[in-house]
Amino acid sequence: MRRAVCPGSFDPVTRGHLDIIDRSSRLFDEVIIAVLVNQTKQGLFSIAERIEILREVTKNLPNVRVESFQGLLVDYCRDNDAQVVVKGIRAVSDFDYELQMAQMNIGLSGVETLFMPTNPLYSFVASSLVKEIAKWGGEVSSFVPELVERRLLEKFRDVGTD
């Protein structure tokens, strides 16, 4: 079985993330969306919320599963018999960082990294920007699925009501 891991924080998941996941699901027998648990960072959405949202917005992809992980990605890949990490690349700055990680991962464990160029429609979309726009009442529907838009509105509905 050809199994790939799409790792990330997904706080929140964007249409750009979903494009990479969808395209990966056509290339591999199984794709694991691996939500990183970073205990040094406080996300907007809890890990449980992110997993719930990701499961809902990928339910149309039967060969995709969603889990969380902490620790080294290569250990997670080994434990799940995944031979490939799939990473979306938006810009050269993404590539510079991700190339270092890919080289480290192959050196540590032999896990390959597939760099997938982001669809130009989403090349500027980042979770951090989406959160900032939503926080100040901006329109995010073209950047995230409807479920995520609703959940962002819920998180930020009290902003500016002092």
Rank of each mutant, 00 (worst) to 15 (best):
I33W: 02
L44S: 05
E52Y: 01
V92W: 01
M101I: 15
V111C: 04
Q42G: 12
L129N: 12
D19W: 15
L27C: 11
D96S: 11
A91M: 08
D94A: 09
I106F: 14
M104E: 00
R50L: 07
L18F: 04
V64K: 03
Y76G: 08
Q103S: 05
N60V: 10
V57F: 02
G43M: 05
Y97E: 01
F28W: 11
T118D: 04
V31Y: 09
V37M: 02
L114W: 09
R23C: 05
V35C: 00
R55L: 09
S25Y: 10
D29L: 01
P117S: 05
L114Q: 02
G16D: 09
V111M: 04
P62Y: 06
E49M: 11
I33L: 07
Y122Q: 06
I20T: 13
L73E: 05
G110N: 10
K87W: 07
V130T: 11
H17T: 12
V130N: 00
N38D: 15
A82S: 15
V64Q: 10
I106V: 15
I89H: 10
P62Q: 07
K41I: 11
D96H: 00
T113A: 06
F69Q: 09
E56C: 12
I51M: 13
I21E: 09
H17E: 10
F69D: 09
F28G: 09
Q70D: 14
S25A: 15
Q83N: 10
I20Q: 10
A48F: 03
T118Y: 08
K87S: 08
G43L: 06
I106N: 06
V92G: 00
H17I: 08
G88C: 10
S25E: 07
V84N: 10
D29I: 00
M101P: 00
G71D: 07
V35D: 03
G110F: 09
N63R: 13
G71N: 04
Q100E: 12
R65F: 12
Q39I: 08
E49V: 12
S25D: 04
I32S: 03
V84R: 11
V57N: 06
S25G: 01
L99S: 01
V64H: 08
Y97G: 01
D19I: 10
F28A: 02
I20G: 05
K131I: 11
I47A: 01
T118Q: 13
Y97Q: 05
A82M: 04
G110Q: 11
N60C: 09
E52A: 14
A82E: 07
F115K: 02
N105A: 07
M116P: 03
Q103G: 01
I89Y: 04
F69I: 10
L36D: 01
L44F: 07
V84W: 13
